[in-house]
Design a binder for these strands. Sequence first.
RNA 1: GGUCUCGUGGCCGAGUGGCUAGGCAGUGGUCUGCAAAACCAUCCACAGCGGUUCGAAUCCGCUCGAGACCUCCA
Length: 487
Amino acid sequence: MDALHLYNTLSGKKEKFEAIKPPFVGLYVCGPTVYSNVHLGNCRTFISFDLINRYLRYLGYQVRYVRNITDAGHLENDAEVGEDKISKKARLESLEPMQIVQTYSIDFRDKMEVFNTLPPDIEPTATGHIVEQIDIIKDIMDKGLAYEINGSVYFDVLKYSETDNYGILSGRKIDELLSGSRALDGQDEKKNAVDFALWKKASPSHIMRWNSPWGEGFPGWHLECSVMSTKYLGESFDIHGGGMDLKFPHHECEIAQNKAANGTHAVKYWLHGNMLTFEGTKMSKSLGNSILPNELFSGDHKLLNKGFDPMVVRFFMLQAHYRSTLDFSNEALEASEKGFQRLMAAFETLHSLDVSDTSDIDSDSYKSLFEGAMNDDFNSPILISHMFDLVKAINSVADGRMTINQATKDGLTELMQHFVVDILGLTPSKQGDGAALIDGLMDVIIDVRNRSRLNKDWATSDAIRDQLKDLNIVVKDGKDGAKWEAQ
RNA sequence: GGUCUCGUGGCCGAGUGGCUAGGCAGUGGUCUGCAAAACCAUCCACAGCGGUUCGAAUCCGCUCGAGACCUCCA
């Protein structure tokens, strides 16, 4: 494709991308609820949108990337007996809620950096926008689309549906929602089961609470994204993304809130990333099949044979299309690891190729293949497959079976820099700080020393021991052989 | 139960109505003191049954199977 097309969940089709106000692009992505460590499935979504953000920038767009942090307002159970996710965790650990928020926000940002995702331009928090949320609630109430009961405010979905289409994004039908809802648990104060909370009254024991015109309480989950996206990107912006599991009800509610408050459907293109699965099932904390990034890096998890470099994990994820589910397994990771190393090795090889006057390779054709793949709804797997064709060509030149001229070499170097580093966000593995590598190196050193001792080559064995000592590594000879220890 | 998505070779994973992605593994080579690595070449597919078509993995129907959402979730 010669122009960027993307799959819009709203229309269910691939559409040509046309920015509302080029060269600017507003990109909003639903971020995490920071009540626990991000797991790998969470990371996948943000890596997917990192790819999208990076490619938009490569195309020359000036992107304003906004990704929120949900630090309040997330109802845990049924609304009636609901408790805020953050405050629940806080009470369990006797911590201040914002302490929880801080701990897991740091973890989140740290993992995003390790996976080499570009930070968002704005990272707003729900608690930082309570005032704006109250304002929009008042606005929606003024328009007659929300009602207050017992200090809580609910969005009137049926009323809204008289003039608008609740379900426009997810394809839900109000009737089906009403009949299918499990309306019995704790039969609540809402007029209809499909109504959702804009503001919840805080029970006496609830520790996260703010003053409002309706008494002390806390905002509903869907509201923050409506508020923060329009605040920072305007009442109409280009792209809104998030995980597939947020499509309903979260994004559906967002649309309704925006439409109710501003009269506009704020978002032009809705993009949804698919789930990371494990043995075919969605990875999620509640199912107990989630893996944390650190566990994957170190290999310290019962389901893992070994650890993997973050860049390998990123590459693994980019080998699948963002709208497809991706199944996680040791085997798949190991395959990606080998492929990643081969790709990066060829990238290195490219720099040192001898040039000729003639060239069997044409960099422009690769460029159009690469761009064509990405233009087709960010198809990174296809992009990578073309890259491996190029890998083959590079190796053939290195092998003397093909030739390349200086201009082509320069063109390919720039092309690979753009697509491997800038767009896919892949950097060479940093194996130097890996404990596994150190262990391996030490084994080699100890082995060499043992052999010199067997040969009674004491000069060598003592030199090794002394030099290690200088590095604060102590070698201890015992009956069962030598051991070492870092001081 | 309702809505929707998907079922591709040993594994992961793209895909267009006809021209057979890619990675890993396997196999055969090159290289190498040996081995490994690296590199080159190559085998294996489209859940099942019908239908549409000159032709379908790609369109339609059914069967079987898997998953997602309908409650918090990236």
